[in-house]
Write a protein that binds this DNA or RNA. Sequence first.
DNA 1: AGGGGTAGGATTGTCGACAATCAAACGGTT
DNA 2: AACCGTTTGATTGTCGACAATCCTACCCCT
Lengths: 220, 220
Amino acid sequence: MPGNLLRPVVQETTPSLIARQLRRAIGDGELAPGQQLNEMELSRSLGVSRGPLREAMQRLTQEGLLLSVRNRGVFVIEVTDDDVRDLYLARNAVERAAAARVIAGDPEAGADRLLEKVDEMSAAIERGDTAALTEADVAFHELLVELSESPRLIRMHDTLMVETRMCMTALETRYASHSFRLDEHREITEAIRAADEARVDLLLLDHMRDAVMRLTTEDA
Amino acid sequence: MPGNLLRPVVQETTPSLIARQLRRAIGDGELAPGQQLNEMELSRSLGVSRGPLREAMQRLTQEGLLLSVRNRGVFVIEVTDDDVRDLYLARNAVERAAAARVIAGDPEAGADRLLEKVDEMSAAIERGDTAALTEADVAFHELLVELSESPRLIRMHDTLMVETRMCMTALETRYASHSFRLDEHREITEAIRAADEARVDLLLLDHMRDAVMRLTTEDA
DNA sequence: AGGGGTAGGATTGTCGACAATCAAACGGTT
DNA sequence: AACCGTTTGATTGTCGACAATCCTACCCCT
């Protein structure tokens, strides 16, 4: 036995790989909101046939990232202000539950891991690297949900975060100066360490409200 | 203008239709947990080609209802006790947020609609119709989330409810005598009407705990 | 008898081609 | 000039066929 470091070989399926590529492209804005996805063109640039590509697009359609219109094609969704509000409502629901799980589990260890991400944000701010800041911000929330160790919360959250990333890149200009958000993340982390669920709920809600304000024009 | 009652024609896409069929079949147990889905056979019985069927299966794979293994095929997921717990954890997260939205909106109207479902459950119990009882139970929770008017909560919840239904039908025997759950639903409804969010949270959590207890063998 | 290797059958993965549908441009008519 | 019908080009929807992979059963060898 050459050690336990040989994982079971799980070949990922092709549509799954393509789907991930598309998700990244949407999140990074390479595929703009409203844009139609030309199957022939996309399949060529991805080096696959239309079949697997179509299967991958169905996955994103199910996630709500693409909009499929019969005999017309699939389009990247356009997020309205209402969508942003709904997006953060859903994120709040998921992250709140995840935080509760972390608190019920090992809040100390979780807080330590989360602080690393806060430090990354801090470093990104020092360098004035807004892209890295956004990444660290996203990573913080993804880690929070991962720490819950709930497959379903994680899956739902992943979908929501692609949309979030899409909004952030689309409105990068308006989203620029969020240096003060650093403190918000730190407070959330410490509230988790203190196992103060009520306070975490409150802080998360505020955090989401801030983001919505920043990402929408008219506020509801 | 012949009235405003002509909706815009939205042709549903074929994979979407197939996906719904598959979801229903899985929820009703026609496709048993762990069973492999033979593409050729299924496509014949659905009257479509393998292409659209595969696209539909990718949708369910994304939802977590099917498990796709490369070069082996797709299988209906088998829900372990851990899965049941996670399932209800996720459901609690979604329904809790939905209830909060209802309370923030029009709790009176929502409670009225919910009471209808409770009455349906009551009627089903009178008739001894367990199938109808299960349906009404599911309908109650689906309505609760629909009332939130949150597209994302609704979409996530729909997925979770297919799994729930699958568990219920798989363990129908053990799940039989849930007459007392009627009161739980009524209490939840009235707590919503009273706009007592904390109480709704508590009742929902209890409700979920009950269900998990009933659907699992070993309790965590 | 046990183990390993090998052929067979079946299923999935991928591709290319054809049919169906749609949006836009064109041309004719009033 | 405005409107309507038609044609055209392009894109999607669907299908069948071929290649790749895997599981099973069988056979041979030790």
